[in-house]
Nucleic acid binder design. Structure first.
Lengths: 205, 205
DNA sequence: CCGGTCCTTGACCGATGGGTCAAATCAAAT
DNA sequence: ATTTGATTTGACCCATCGGTCAAGGACCGG
């Protein structure tokens, strides 16, 4: 999918990411999308079967980009706890940049589309689930290292780590939602200490 | 606003809550709204200046209802920690009920609309901010009691309690987002232990 | 110079979007 | 019984919606 993609198609995807993030799926029409990308209707439908298909592709690219940043953190030489905290810096910086450039914190494409479209548009739902799965895969090793560091003796269950990963995603998305609500990206970083508290809680969660 | 409201208007608001929650703002048209409420277009625009105005009213009612449940918990005779955990049961039960009835967990109207509409539609944004403020007001005394119980000596700063309240809202909304993504209401309750860990963290957050 | 494939054009389609309006109906209050 | 104001009706407006299509370019290996 990522190899040798047609530049027009690629540009359409980038335009979609920017517009859907900023104004939502329903509020952005195909005509506006084409105008913004400098492309004609026919070209749009040459590359994508539908508006929903474009969104699915946009989510996939967005998820890849963000996942790559998570992986970079996971592979860095920070301590597990520092890595955990660093995760929250990624969406926070992105939202701060949007706020500086466009005047508004826009949240996260995956979170936004999940709440706007829910179960409708099956291919979009599939794309969001794939995005969450990818992010969880990037985060899981960090959490395993955190638990290891804390209680080296106790063997880690996969289910436990998976539940932890879900909670970290929730923390990120909860912070992102508040950031968009208040147009204040710092709410994202404010959840990092909670993640830390959760991973070091005396009572096993 | 709540006194002696016209029944037709009230019914329109309830219909709006159900439809916008389930399918999003952009995906539900005024015609469908009217059909579902058994009302004509003209009647709709007799009571509401626009589709956005109806949404604002729907958010206000939704926020009142949920806030009342939070208040009931706050005034109960549970311990502060138990109250904190009980908060998460409210949206979890609502989503479980939707899942049982309609087949899908629908999230939270305020969270859904915040991510779908963001800064657009000023009156909607005002309604969501009011909703968050109301919920925070209900939650704040519970958090103050938790802190009190933990460290009776240290005086509580309003800013600290406010930051705590924001984090609890984030926890709730993060859980709600995952619940909608996976159509699994239990992700909401899964955030309760995190709230507990946060309020009892050895390192002050 | 050819044939074929990929890409692009822009006009066009029926349906639906949010919103308006003049006229009809209803419920008191006089 | 009449007036008055709030409520309700349903036809109507036009812009925009997502999507289609027949025709042309652009670029290829041969």
């Amino acid at each position: 999918m990522v190899f040798m993609m047609n530049p027009t198609q690629s540009h359409l995807i980038n335009t979609a990411i920017a517009l859907f993030l900023g104004r939502g799926y329903g509020a952005v029409g195909t005509a506006e999308l084409c105008r913004a990308a400098g492309v004609n209707k026919g070209t749009f439908y040459h590359f994508f079967a539908s508006k929903a298909a474009l969104l699915a592709a946009a989510i996939a690219r967005y998820a890849d980009d963000l996942g790559a940043e998570f992986d970079t953190i996971a592979r860095s030489d920070l301590t597990p706890s520092e890595k955990l905290v660093a995760l929250f810096g990624v969406p926070e910086r992105a939202n701060q940049a949007w706020k500086d450039d466009d005047g508004v914190a826009q949240g996260c494409l995956v979170g936004n589309m999940t709440l706007e479209l829910g179960g409708e548009e099956p291919e979009v739902r599939a794309a969001t689930l794939a995005a969450l799965a990818k992010w969880k895969a990037s985060i899981r090793p960090i959490l395993a290292a955190c638990r290891e560091e804390q209680e080296p003796k106790i063997p880690l269950s996969d289910a436990q780590i998976d539940a932890d990963a879900n909670r970290i995603i929730s923390l990120l998305q909860g912070g992102l939602l508040l950031a968009k609500a208040y147009d204040a990206p710092e709410h994202i970083g404010a959840m990092a200490p909670v993640a830390l508290a959760m991973m070091t809680a005396p009572a096993a969660i």
